[in-house]
């Protein structure tokens, strides 16, 4: 047992003060939070899909349908997993461990790139489907934009809930939304070269993670 400097408990006036303050400032209860979160998630997804269809929607070009399906299926699966890790807190109010969140933030883009590269093995001819730098930059910008909308929605949905590691949570959310954006852009981008996939489809996930790591702590933290 530990001998420590003992102390009286908090004064009763403090209790009265806090109860009065909370009574005067109603806060959303769980049902409202769940409803708001759903609304924000739907809004974020809708914005991303609006951008996707505005720039042309699904487009195979010269890519085999099997290649597109394989890439998209792998990226979508990865997106679901990393989003679940980054956004769903699990059984604790303190959320995932920093290690898990950082793993999502750092490994998502390499994972997407690795899968994308692996998908070219059955169809090696797609590696020659390349384009100029304007297309690289265009894809890069659209991917970033499509990831930004749901990222903003999720960060807002989780605002003021992470007292321990908001930066890591933000970075993981950024990477996860970058993965979804990469999945969408891959459904319409006619280029399948390794360099294009790395720069325009996977790299935005890293940049979104970095961006969210900088911006999100102010919103996610207490």
């Amino acid at each position: 047992m530990i001998p420590t400097m003992a102390h009286a408990g908090p004064p009763s006036a403090l209790r009265d003060r806090i109860l009065a303050a909370t009574g005067q400032a109603p806060s959303p209860v769980r049902v409202q939070v769940v409803r708001n979160t759903r609304a924000l998630v739907v809004l974020g997804m809708a914005l991303a899909l609006t951008i996707f269809f505005a720039i042309g929607g699904l487009h195979l070009g010269h890519r085999p349908a099997g290649f597109v399906a394989m890439t998209a299926a792998g990226w979508a699966t990865a997106s679901v997993v990393v989003t679940w890790i980054a956004f769903v807190r699990g059984p604790s109010m303190l959320g995932r461990t920093r290690r898990a969140l950082l793993a999502v933030a750092l490994l998502t883009a390499p994972l997407l790139f690795a899968w994308g590269t692996l998908s070219t093995v059955p169809w090696p001819e797609v590696r020659s489907l390349d384009s100029d730098w304007s297309n690289y930059l265009g894809c890069f910008a659209w991917t970033g934009l499509m990831g930004l909308a749901p990222l903003a929605a999720l960060v807002l949905a989780r605002r003021g809930t992470d007292p321990v590691h908001p930066r890591a949570t933000g970075a993981a959310l950024g990477a996860a939304m970058g993965a979804w954006a990469g999945t969408l852009i891959d459904l319409r981008c006619i280029c399948a070269s390794v360099a294009h996939m790395a720069f325009s489809h996977a790299l935005p996930a890293i940049l979104l993670a970095l961006f969210a790591a900088i911006v999100a702590p102010r919103i996610l933290g207490f």
Binding site: A25, P28, P163, F222
Partner: peptide
């Protein structure tokens, strides 16, 4: 006081069945 006001503000986010003590200490520490 600040800790309890934060808990109050974020109560809707509370995960059912999770422990409140570590959360409260984490907020206080933050």
């Amino acid at each position: 006081q600040q800790t309890f006001l934060r808990i109050h503000r974020a109560r809707g986010h509370f995960v059912a069945g999770s422990a409140v003590t570590p959360w409260a200490f984490a907020i206080a520490r933050r």
